[in-house]
Protein backbone atom coordinates (compact mmCIF):
# COMPACT_ATOMS: atom_id res chain seq x y z
CA UNK A 1 0.00 0.00 0.00
CA UNK A 2 3.03 2.31 0.38
CA UNK A 3 5.87 3.54 -1.81
CA UNK A 4 8.57 0.87 -1.67
CA UNK A 5 11.92 0.03 -3.13
CA UNK A 6 12.49 -3.28 -4.86
CA UNK A 7 14.49 -4.99 -2.10
CA UNK A 8 11.86 -4.14 0.50
CA UNK A 9 9.13 -5.50 -1.75
CA UNK A 10 10.99 -8.81 -2.16
CA UNK A 11 11.51 -9.23 1.60
CA UNK A 12 7.89 -8.29 2.35
CA UNK A 13 6.64 -10.88 -0.15
CA UNK A 14 8.95 -13.52 1.33
CA UNK A 15 10.77 -13.90 -2.02
CA UNK A 16 14.17 -13.26 -0.44
CA UNK A 17 15.18 -13.28 3.22
CA UNK A 18 16.42 -10.31 5.20
CA UNK A 19 19.93 -11.83 5.38
CA UNK A 20 20.12 -12.46 1.62
CA UNK A 21 18.99 -8.91 0.89
CA UNK A 22 21.67 -7.53 3.21
CA UNK A 23 24.28 -9.71 1.42
CA UNK A 24 23.18 -8.25 -1.94
CA UNK A 25 23.28 -4.70 -0.55
CA UNK A 26 26.81 -5.33 0.77
CA UNK A 27 27.81 -6.44 -2.73
CA UNK A 28 26.23 -3.31 -4.22
CA UNK A 29 28.15 -1.11 -1.80
CA UNK A 30 31.44 -2.78 -2.72
CA UNK A 31 30.83 -2.51 -6.48
CA UNK A 32 29.15 0.89 -6.76
CA UNK A 33 31.79 3.59 -6.45
CA UNK A 34 30.89 6.90 -4.83
CA UNK A 35 31.54 10.03 -6.86
CA UNK A 36 34.90 10.73 -5.22
CA UNK A 37 36.03 7.10 -5.61
CA UNK A 38 35.00 7.09 -9.27
CA UNK A 39 36.81 10.38 -9.89
CA UNK A 40 40.00 8.89 -8.40
CA UNK A 41 39.55 5.61 -10.31
CA UNK A 42 39.21 7.55 -13.58
CA UNK A 43 42.37 9.49 -12.79
CA UNK A 44 40.61 12.87 -12.78
CA UNK A 45 41.58 13.73 -9.21
CA UNK A 46 43.86 12.50 -6.43
CA UNK A 47 42.83 11.22 -3.02
CA UNK A 48 44.33 14.41 -1.56
CA UNK A 49 41.96 16.49 -3.76
CA UNK A 50 38.99 14.56 -2.41
CA UNK A 51 40.11 15.09 1.18
CA UNK A 52 40.54 18.81 0.50
CA UNK A 53 37.00 18.97 -0.92
CA UNK A 54 35.58 17.01 2.02
CA UNK A 55 37.18 19.50 4.40
CA UNK A 56 35.69 22.39 2.41
CA UNK A 57 32.27 20.69 2.64
CA UNK A 58 32.37 21.22 6.41
CA UNK A 59 31.81 24.93 5.84
CA UNK A 60 29.89 24.83 2.54
CA UNK A 61 26.53 23.18 1.97
CA UNK A 62 27.38 21.80 -1.48
CA UNK A 63 27.47 18.39 -3.12
CA UNK A 64 30.99 16.98 -3.60
CA UNK A 65 30.86 17.15 -7.40
CA UNK A 66 29.73 20.78 -7.49
CA UNK A 67 32.37 21.67 -4.95
CA UNK A 68 35.16 19.97 -6.93
CA UNK A 69 34.12 22.08 -9.93
CA UNK A 70 33.93 25.26 -7.87
CA UNK A 71 37.38 24.59 -6.44
CA UNK A 72 38.76 24.21 -9.98
CA UNK A 73 39.76 20.58 -9.37
CA UNK A 74 37.33 19.24 -12.00
CA UNK A 75 35.82 20.79 -15.11
CA UNK A 76 32.07 20.54 -15.62
CA UNK A 77 32.65 18.14 -18.51
CA UNK A 78 34.78 15.88 -16.32
CA UNK A 79 32.08 15.88 -13.64
CA UNK A 80 29.46 14.90 -16.21
CA UNK A 81 31.71 12.09 -17.50
CA UNK A 82 32.17 10.77 -13.95
CA UNK A 83 28.42 10.84 -13.26
CA UNK A 84 27.74 9.08 -16.57
CA UNK A 85 30.30 6.37 -15.74
CA UNK A 86 28.71 5.95 -12.30
CA UNK A 87 25.29 5.46 -13.90
CA UNK A 88 26.53 3.11 -16.60
CA UNK A 89 28.36 0.83 -14.17
CA UNK A 90 25.75 0.96 -11.39
CA UNK A 91 24.84 -2.46 -9.98
CA UNK A 92 21.13 -2.50 -9.19
CA UNK A 93 19.75 -4.49 -6.28
CA UNK A 94 18.02 -6.97 -8.60
CA UNK A 95 21.30 -7.66 -10.41
CA UNK A 96 23.08 -8.01 -7.07
CA UNK A 97 20.49 -10.58 -5.96
CA UNK A 98 21.19 -12.58 -9.12
CA UNK A 99 24.93 -12.39 -8.46
CA UNK A 100 24.53 -13.70 -4.89
CA UNK A 101 22.41 -16.56 -6.23
CA UNK A 102 19.11 -15.50 -4.68
CA UNK A 103 17.29 -15.06 -8.00
CA UNK A 104 17.68 -16.25 -11.57
CA UNK A 105 17.54 -13.70 -14.38
CA UNK A 106 14.10 -14.98 -15.40
CA UNK A 107 12.82 -14.64 -11.83
CA UNK A 108 14.24 -11.13 -11.63
CA UNK A 109 12.36 -10.07 -14.77
CA UNK A 110 9.11 -11.55 -13.45
CA UNK A 111 9.45 -9.97 -9.99
CA UNK A 112 10.38 -6.60 -11.49
CA UNK A 113 7.20 -6.70 -13.59
CA UNK A 114 5.13 -7.57 -10.51
CA UNK A 115 6.85 -4.82 -8.51
CA UNK A 116 6.14 -2.22 -11.21
CA UNK A 117 2.49 -3.25 -11.26
CA UNK A 118 2.36 -2.98 -7.43
CA UNK A 119 3.87 0.50 -7.50
CA UNK A 120 2.01 1.78 -10.59
CA UNK A 121 -0.52 3.44 -8.31
CA UNK A 122 2.27 5.76 -7.13
CA UNK A 123 3.50 6.88 -10.56
CA UNK A 124 3.04 10.63 -10.57
CA UNK A 125 0.26 12.27 -12.54
CA UNK A 126 0.81 15.71 -14.01
CA UNK A 127 0.44 18.53 -11.47
CA UNK A 128 0.79 22.12 -12.63
CA UNK A 129 2.87 24.46 -10.48
CA UNK A 130 3.41 28.20 -10.94
CA UNK A 131 6.64 29.12 -12.78
CA UNK A 132 10.07 29.51 -11.15
CA UNK A 133 9.54 27.22 -8.16
CA UNK A 134 12.75 25.44 -7.04
CA UNK A 135 12.61 21.62 -6.74
CA UNK A 136 9.39 21.61 -8.74
CA UNK A 137 9.55 17.85 -9.51
CA UNK A 138 9.61 17.11 -5.79
CA UNK A 139 6.64 19.40 -5.07
CA UNK A 140 4.69 17.98 -8.00
CA UNK A 141 5.30 14.51 -6.59
CA UNK A 142 4.34 15.71 -3.10
CA UNK A 143 0.99 17.08 -4.28
CA UNK A 144 0.35 13.97 -6.35
CA UNK A 145 1.11 11.60 -3.45
CA UNK A 146 -1.08 13.69 -1.16
CA UNK A 147 -4.02 13.25 -3.55
CA UNK A 148 -3.35 9.53 -3.83
CA UNK A 149 -3.17 9.09 -0.05
CA UNK A 150 -6.39 11.07 0.39
CA UNK A 151 -8.04 8.50 -1.84
CA UNK A 152 -6.35 5.38 -0.46
CA UNK A 153 -5.98 6.17 3.23
CA UNK A 154 -8.89 8.54 3.87
CA UNK A 155 -11.29 7.22 1.22
CA UNK A 156 -12.50 10.74 0.41
CA UNK A 157 -13.95 11.87 -2.92
CA UNK A 158 -12.40 15.21 -3.87
CA UNK A 159 -11.52 17.57 -6.69
CA UNK A 160 -8.05 19.18 -6.64
CA UNK A 161 -8.07 22.85 -7.58
CA UNK A 162 -5.29 24.76 -9.28
CA UNK A 163 -2.17 25.46 -7.22
CA UNK A 164 -1.51 29.11 -6.44
CA UNK A 165 1.15 31.11 -4.60
CA UNK A 166 -0.26 32.79 -1.47
CA UNK A 167 1.12 35.36 0.96
CA UNK A 168 -1.08 34.36 3.92
CA UNK A 169 -2.23 30.92 5.01
CA UNK A 170 -6.00 31.01 5.43
CA UNK A 171 -7.53 30.35 8.83
CA UNK A 172 -9.01 26.90 9.32
CA UNK A 173 -9.96 24.64 12.25
CA UNK A 174 -6.49 23.12 12.53
CA UNK A 175 -3.29 22.42 10.63
CA UNK A 176 -0.78 19.63 10.97
CA UNK A 177 2.74 20.37 9.78
CA UNK A 178 5.98 18.54 9.17
CA UNK A 179 9.39 20.09 8.49
CA UNK A 180 11.35 18.60 5.60
CA UNK A 181 15.13 18.90 5.50
CA UNK A 182 18.08 17.35 3.64
CA UNK A 183 18.26 18.41 -0.01
CA UNK A 184 15.16 20.59 0.54
CA UNK A 185 14.19 23.15 3.16
CA UNK A 186 10.42 23.17 3.41
CA UNK A 187 7.36 22.70 5.59
CA UNK A 188 4.44 20.46 4.57
CA UNK A 189 1.05 21.45 5.97
CA UNK A 190 -2.43 20.00 5.80
CA UNK A 191 -5.20 22.39 6.82
CA UNK A 192 -8.58 20.89 7.74
CA UNK A 193 -12.01 22.08 8.83
CA UNK A 194 -13.66 20.51 11.88
CA UNK A 195 -15.73 18.05 9.86
CA UNK A 196 -12.73 17.00 7.82
CA UNK A 197 -10.72 16.41 10.98
CA UNK A 198 -13.35 13.87 12.06
CA UNK A 199 -13.32 12.24 8.63
CA UNK A 200 -9.54 11.86 8.87
CA UNK A 201 -9.83 10.48 12.42
CA UNK A 202 -12.42 7.86 11.42
CA UNK A 203 -10.22 6.67 8.57
CA UNK A 204 -6.97 6.57 10.55
CA UNK A 205 -8.50 4.97 13.66
CA UNK A 206 -10.70 2.68 11.52
CA UNK A 207 -13.72 3.58 13.67
CA UNK A 208 -17.35 4.25 12.70
CA UNK A 209 -17.63 7.15 15.15
CA UNK A 210 -15.07 9.44 16.76
CA UNK A 211 -17.57 11.61 18.65
CA UNK A 212 -16.18 10.58 22.03
CA UNK A 213 -12.51 10.83 21.13
CA UNK A 214 -10.42 13.44 22.98
CA UNK A 215 -9.09 16.43 21.04
CA UNK A 216 -5.51 15.17 21.26
CA UNK A 217 -6.43 11.93 19.52
CA UNK A 218 -8.35 13.75 16.77
CA UNK A 219 -5.40 16.08 16.18
CA UNK A 220 -2.98 13.18 16.27
CA UNK A 221 -4.80 11.47 13.39
CA UNK A 222 -4.21 14.48 11.12
CA UNK A 223 -0.55 14.54 12.17
CA UNK A 224 -0.32 10.84 11.37
CA UNK A 225 -1.78 11.43 7.91
CA UNK A 226 0.89 14.09 7.37
CA UNK A 227 3.54 11.63 8.60
CA UNK A 228 2.38 8.93 6.19
CA UNK A 229 2.35 11.28 3.20
CA UNK A 230 5.74 12.84 3.99
CA UNK A 231 7.39 9.45 4.62
CA UNK A 232 6.17 8.27 1.24
CA UNK A 233 7.32 11.54 -0.36
CA UNK A 234 10.78 10.87 1.14
CA UNK A 235 10.70 7.36 -0.37
CA UNK A 236 9.70 8.66 -3.80
CA UNK A 237 12.30 11.44 -3.57
CA UNK A 238 15.04 8.92 -2.74
CA UNK A 239 14.20 7.09 -5.98
CA UNK A 240 14.79 10.45 -7.73
CA UNK A 241 18.17 10.88 -5.99
CA UNK A 242 16.91 13.55 -3.61
CA UNK A 243 17.37 13.13 0.14
CA UNK A 244 14.47 14.30 2.28
CA UNK A 245 14.56 13.92 6.06
CA UNK A 246 11.34 14.19 8.01
CA UNK A 247 10.80 15.44 11.54
CA UNK A 248 8.03 14.62 14.03
CA UNK A 249 4.78 16.39 13.02
CA UNK A 250 3.25 19.26 14.98
CA UNK A 251 -0.22 20.77 15.34
CA UNK A 252 -1.03 24.39 14.59
CA UNK A 253 -4.26 26.21 15.46
CA UNK A 254 -4.20 29.20 13.12
CA UNK A 255 -5.70 32.52 14.31
CA UNK A 256 -8.79 33.88 12.52
CA UNK A 257 -6.57 36.32 10.62
CA UNK A 258 -4.60 33.43 9.14
CA UNK A 259 -0.83 32.90 9.27
CA UNK A 260 1.78 34.99 7.44
CA UNK A 261 4.24 33.20 5.19
CA UNK A 262 7.74 33.32 6.74
CA UNK A 263 10.24 35.55 4.98
CA UNK A 264 12.37 33.73 2.42
CA UNK A 265 9.73 31.09 1.74
CA UNK A 266 7.24 30.62 -1.09
CA UNK A 267 3.84 29.27 -0.06
CA UNK A 268 2.18 26.97 -2.58
CA UNK A 269 -1.47 26.39 -1.77
CA UNK A 270 -3.33 23.42 -3.26
CA UNK A 271 -7.04 23.79 -2.39
CA UNK A 272 -8.81 20.43 -2.35
CA UNK A 273 -12.55 20.63 -2.88
CA UNK A 274 -14.31 18.06 -0.69
CA UNK A 275 -17.89 19.36 -0.53
CA UNK A 276 -19.94 22.20 0.85
CA UNK A 277 -19.02 23.56 4.26
CA UNK A 278 -15.71 21.69 4.55
CA UNK A 279 -12.24 22.94 3.77
CA UNK A 280 -9.09 20.97 3.01
CA UNK A 281 -5.82 22.46 1.76
CA UNK A 282 -2.32 21.22 1.15
CA UNK A 283 0.26 23.96 1.68
CA UNK A 284 3.96 23.72 0.89
CA UNK A 285 6.29 26.33 2.32
CA UNK A 286 9.43 26.03 0.24
CA UNK A 287 12.66 27.97 0.78
CA UNK A 288 13.19 30.34 -2.19
Amino acid sequence: MAVKFFGQYLVEKGIVSRDVLLKAIDLQERKNLKLGEMAVAMGCVTQADIERAHNAQLSKDMKLGDLLVEMGILTLNQLNDIITRQKNTHLYIGEALVLVGALTNAQLVQHLDDFKADQAQYVADRIELPDAIPNRRIWETTADLTYKMITRVLGIQFRPEKCRVVSTLDANFMMAAMDLSGDVDARYLISVSEGLQKTVAKAILREESVDNEPVEVLEDTVMEFVNVVCGNVAAKASQMGVIININPPVTIRPPSSGLPVPEGYTALCFPIHVGEGEKLELILLARQ
Binding site: A2, F5, Q8, V11, G231, K236, S238
Partner: peptide
Protein backbone atom coordinates in the same frame (compact mmCIF):
# COMPACT_ATOMS: atom_id res chain seq x y z
CA UNK B 1 6.35 5.79 6.84
CA UNK B 2 10.04 5.84 5.84
CA UNK B 3 10.13 2.12 4.97
CA UNK B 4 10.41 2.93 1.28
CA UNK B 5 13.59 4.94 1.79
CA UNK B 6 16.21 2.34 0.89
CA UNK B 7 18.90 3.66 3.22
CA UNK B 8 16.56 3.70 6.22
CA UNK B 9 15.27 0.21 5.48
CA UNK B 10 18.80 -1.17 5.11
CA UNK B 11 20.03 0.59 8.26
CA UNK B 12 17.16 -0.90 10.27
CA UNK B 13 17.91 -4.44 9.06
CA UNK B 14 21.64 -4.01 9.67
CA UNK B 15 20.99 -2.83 13.21
CA UNK B 16 19.03 -5.99 13.86
CA UNK B 17 15.39 -5.27 12.99
CA UNK B 18 13.65 -8.46 11.84
CA UNK B 19 11.53 -6.63 9.28
CA UNK B 20 10.13 -3.21 8.35
CA UNK B 21 6.43 -2.45 7.91
CA UNK B 22 5.71 0.57 5.73
CA UNK B 23 2.88 2.98 6.46
CA UNK B 24 0.14 3.01 5.38
CA UNK B 25 -0.30 -0.68 6.19
CA UNK B 26 -3.06 -3.25 5.94
CA UNK B 27 -3.91 -5.44 8.95
CA UNK B 28 -3.06 -8.61 7.03
CA UNK B 29 0.45 -7.35 6.20
Amino acid sequence: SLGGVGDKFTEALRLGARNVISKPFESID
